[in-house]
Design a protein around this nucleic acid. Structure first.
Lengths: 342, 342
DNA sequence: TGCTATTGTGTGATCGATTACACACTCTGT
DNA sequence: ACAGAGTGTGTAATCGATCACACAATAGCA
């Protein structure tokens, strides 16, 4: 009978008994809905303090049919971008009183089992009755999921190629590609290599498209490497080791990490960025300011991306209809790796 | 009455109605506990498929008094180490059928409101009825939390100064400090600077202790900088900009990022690592292999740390008593930043 | 003096699952 | 033919909250 004996956590019934009121009254006091007398308040509060009572959210969630929780799908292990997005989501959600339940997906882009895996992970989030889902990593093959989810619960993707006019927040990768390339052109470069990001990803192709448009407009021949395997510095290094045909004086790398690896490979060939050639990239991770040389890059505000995603979920929850897409603008950060050609 | 009308998700009652059995039978089929006839199984399964039924974990959790969920507290925004730990946790937990609910704490180490903040976050996890909690970032002042939690639910800290023989998993920072310093001594260095990590953190002081012990044994004077503000490259850069008294031929930096920033500052003074002086650090983040020069460092397996933490929680859950501490050994990774003195 | 509003409290249905229990039926083996 | 084991299924209590509803008591006001 006495739940104290079982050393389980005290329930509202225990508080009610101690304060000599009914559970209904305790609930009204705790939720702030309905009338509760001053003396009852008093007694309930001290009972709560004495027992160290904490409301059981599982029970509350069952009754209220809402969990104040949102689910996040990202690819793991987390790289700089994904973990920043997660931090932004956590920040915004915690302040709004929401919790985050996360699931990381293996990111073998080519693994045929991947779609099933993502489906399973999403299913688990749904089973947990999350109030909304954020797909934090753009993922080829998530499209099927999209339609099913869109009509079920608030859903936001960070893909920059949303299939509808709603439910996405992303940085303008095309603009970022343009920004980077334009900077090199402005510096006077006429032979610009693009070290391309992973294939199948809209982010990569948008960046490339930005590059191509600028380069075409300037009457320069486009030179694009084979796609990197992933966004890592090791991928950039591998590309740098490959024979590169044609001459070039500047390289636009798909992101900072790739640029780092690419520069490493170039050093092995005796070429120093910021002296023998120029490099520009995209991301502006914290370390980029201390690369050798400090990396000129296009900053993407991943934290804001996460916050924005949460805000959209919240708006959907409050208004009942999906929030309009939010596009985040990239910004050029001039440092020392991009200089005029020799 | 008909919950289909409300377009809410189908419940077990809907499945039972469609399959023409009672909810008890549906439950038995789904949980695999108890007898269910072959034809009933058949009908239930097709009802499940037809309705797209998913069990409501909130209801299940309330009834079973277990959520198959663990809470993770880390400091945000996530740096390389923390996000790797999180990935390790996610990996291990997802495979075991557990979910992760995360909360990131602001890491102003000196902010007096910090302990209250961590308390609130932990309280929220408790309210969510998580089955266990992992404190993924060592945090000065979490000690008070410790005692309360230890006796409440399975709790694992990643602190390398556990207060007990149980409930902690961590890398041996002292050994890492020794490993790094020994390598420099072995290379022939006799004047070694230690760029110290953030104060108040056991990890920092353990690394320093490892350094001091090795240096003392070799009859070398210890030279230690003021502590960095945090683990970032910018901190390392700031230290590097400070006037450094005394001569030294090699620097042991508290982690990779700090080393990167420190080298940046040294370049500004015309000094190149791997040529004019040596650098060694701790972490082995993926980019370190592509620093200029590739960084010699002591690898810490953060992913394994996360997995280990989850395993300990699981063991506690299964056996009913806390798992013994797990220590992870660091490993030297030789690259090009540490060379014999000129 | 009544009559309505406001305030305060208890009761019981409910959310969607799990599971103990009761009951029925089918086989065995004696 | 009957006891007992093994199957298969329905009923109802339960987990811990929220909240609609009923009902008192008090206050204000004609």
């Amino acid at each position: 009978m006495n739940s104290q004996q079982k050393r389980s956590r005290p329930s509202m019934a225990d508080v009610a008994a101690l304060a000599n009121v009914s559970v209904g009254t305790v609930s009204r006091h705790l939720t702030g809905r309905g009338y509760v007398g001053a003396d009852a308040r008093q007694r309930i509060q001290s009972a709560v303090d004495e027992l160290g009572y904490r409301p059981n959210l599982v029970a509350r969630n069952l009754r209220t049919q809402t969990t104040n929780t949102i689910g996040v799908l990202s690819m793991g292990p987390l790289d700089f971008g994904s973990s920043s997005v997660l931090s932004g989501l956590d920040d915004a959600s915690r302040q709004a009183g929401y919790g985050l339940i996360t699931a990381q997906l293996p990111h073998d882009l080519d693994d045929p089992r991947a779609p099933a895996e993502i489906e399973r992970a999403a299913g688990r989030l749904l089973a947990h009755q999350v109030d909304g889902i954020v797909l934090a990593s753009p993922y080829p093959g998530f499209e099927d999921l999209w339609d099913e989810l869109l009509n079920t619960i608030p859903f936001v993707t960070l893909s920059n190629h949303p299939r509808q006019e709603v439910g996405a927040t992303y940085v303008d990768s095309y603009a970022a590609g343009r920004l980077a390339t334009e900077h090199l052109v402005d510096l006077g470069h006429r032979a610009i290599l693009h070290v391309r990001g992973p294939r199948n990803l809209h982010e990569s192709s948008d960046r490339e498209r930005g590059y191509r448009d600028v380069v075409d407009a300037a009457g320069i021949d486009a030179q694009v490497t084979v796609p990197c395997e992933d966004w890592s510095s090791t991928s950039g290094y591998r590309i740098g080791r490959l024979p590169i045909e044609g001459r070039w004086t500047a390289a636009f790398c798909a992101n900072d990490a790739i640029a780092l690896g690419f520069q490493h490979a170039m050093y092995e060939r005796g070429l120093s960025a910021g002296r023998d050639y120029s490099v520009i990239a995209i991301d502006d991770m914290p370390d980029a300011a201390h690369f050798h040389p400090p990396l000129t890059t296009v900053a993407l505000d991943h934290l804001e991306l996460g916050r924005s995603a949460f805000r959209m979920i919240l708006e959907h929850l409050r208004t009942g209809s999906p929030a309009a897409n939010t596009v985040i603008e990239p910004a050029l950060v001039r440092r020392e790796s991009a200089v005029p050609p020799a």
